[in-house]
Design a binder for these strands. Structure first.
Lengths: 304, 304
DNA sequence: GCGATCCGTTAGTGATTCTTACAAATAATC
DNA sequence: GATTATTTGTAAGAATCACTAACGGATCGC
């Protein structure tokens, strides 16, 4: 029996009619696929693909062979999935900040639940950005900065670009055209990020009022709610208001330079990925994060 | 999808109800199997085997899972085999000495042919023990000693124990009871191994006649034929006369100490094993060789 | 024509897998 | 019941395997 790894590479390459595409699917370089195919061709002593320049196509014989390979792998894959699901609900605990939970994680959870009904996700929140004192062990910790812990791995999974948002009706009044116009509005502040407004004003060439005029909140999500209600302007991570912007509830009033942070990160034990449930949830978080890139440079023009 | 390697280990272990046996089947240590199973159990987050001391048995769930795994692998294995066979006959060339070809290799070839009809084996013989001057490239070279060549691998695959044999009827006459009795017979000699008789006599505590009385042959197989015809006694590798001894045509007349050589070896290119045909023939040779161990110490008593 | 894309090869690196120990537990044997 | 021989699981190191990165050659689209 030939190498199963080589057979998988062969199958993927044949299905895509492309070595590179197969590499993308299996998360390896095109070179890795190419080598595995070479090994397989060496094993059988004859070519598996017809190569005409860039394009590759499986031999007539190989095509028939592929059918069986696919059926075999499919059977194994389906059985594995069924076995995994039959094992009862598995619990994954995620700790993050209240704001991130409310405005990013929880809205996306239904999507995960429907894709993986056997996995139960428990979200817990801690107000602190510090992870040192977290009592319980969590499977995944999400924070706004990179973290470090022995035997753990930290992945950046979401851009942290803080932009100014206000309620839709404030924009429609036409009073906000340039950054300086903000000075006429209450500036919603957060206790945990006192430097947000000063840095933002500096970045956009406006001298920052001192003291800032406006209420102080403990959490992002509270200030966002205040902004939605027309209480003033807030500087918040784009990722946490994406849906409100898209829905037209909030608006980014003008083109501006944004505060770019180190990004949102997830922290988990290194061996968490060797577990199917662990890999599933981490892959999902990474995919969700990468799938929603904020526009670089300037925020989108608010919908008309 | 979990690691295919781990699934194979799991399947084999379950089939044998034994980690060690699975290791033997897959040609790895029991530890390797044990670790792969651990990985799989970690992946699924629950045990696959019930362990009661030494004995292991798959979980009820796992047993159902196994069915599908087996079907999947079987499908792939069968398709691979079919694909390999559909590729037309492949040729393997083997070079060895005339004696080895006649008395060991050729008698066994029909067994190989019926197991692998798509592979054509071509046997060529060279009288010399030297492999340096062999002109053509051969896939496999078989000689009585270890060989060395760049990018090649040499495996010992057959014991080389030379013992004394005579025609059956000479034994029945009762004239041969101890080594010393040989002195009354013609001693069949070989040009390539002039030291055989002197060493054998020395090993068995008999002073060797000088010069030896008896005809000189170029090849083992000629001297064996002479022995069969009652012309005298020969010292020949046990492996080359095994079937004649078993059939009662030749006989090992008495218990004696035998000449133990370094063994018969096969030489082939290192990458020959990456080819299916290559691996098939090498595996077959190794299995045939290991399957026919000569009795250690003393030769068998001739059949009555 | 020219840039972009794709495949194949090589050398070097990195990761997985295996082997070789050892420890614990059990089954077999005396 | 003590002893020996098996068998499984774990740990650490070694060996193998697979992958990446970089380059060259070839083709395709513009």
């Amino acid at each position: 029996m030939p190498s199963l790894k080589a057979l998988r590479a062969f199958e993927a390459a044949a299905r895509h009619s492309s070595v590179s595409a197969a590499g993308r699917e299996l998360n390896v370089s095109h070179s890795a696929i190419s080598q595995q195919i070479s090994i397989l061709e060496g094993y059988f002593g004859r070519p598996l693909f017809l190569r005409r320049g860039k394009r590759i196509a499986p031999t007539a014989e190989a095509a028939a062979f592929l059918e069986d390979i696919r059926l075999g792998f499919d059977r194994i894959a389906m059985a594995s999935e069924q076995f995994a699901r039959s094992g009862g609900a598995r619990v994954v605990t995620i700790n993050t900040t209240p704001s991130f939970a409310m405005r990013w994680l929880i809205p996306r959870l239904p999507g995960f639940q429907s894709a993986h009904p056997e996995i139960e996700v428990r979200v817990s929140t801690s107000s602190t950005d510090q992870i040192a004192g977290l009592g319980e062990p969590y499977d995944i910790i999400i924070r706004r900065d990179a973290m470090n812990r022995a035997d753990h791995r930290c992945d950046r999974f979401l851009d942290d670009v803080a932009t100014v948002v206000v309620a839709r009706n404030l924009v429609e009044k036409g009073a906000l055209k340039v950054p300086k116009d903000l000075l006429g509005l209450p500036l919603l502040q957060m206790r945990s990020r006192p430097e947000a407004w000063p840095r933002w004003f500096e970045l956009n060439g406006v001298s920052c009022p001192d003291p800032l005029a406006g209420p102080l909140f403990e959490h992002f999500f509270l200030s966002v709610q205040a902004a939605i209600n027309g209480l003033g302007a807030a500087v918040v991570p784009y990722a946490l208001v994406e849906s409100d912007l898209a829905a037209g509830i909030l608006a980014a009033p003008f083109s501006s330079r944004d505060l770019v942070g180190p990004g949102f990160h997830i922290l988990y034990r290194t061996d968490f990925l060797t577990n199917r449930v662990g890999r599933t949830i981490v892959d999902w978080l990474l995919a969700e994060g990468r799938g929603h890139k904020p526009p670089s440079g300037s925020p989108p023009v608010p919908p008309a």
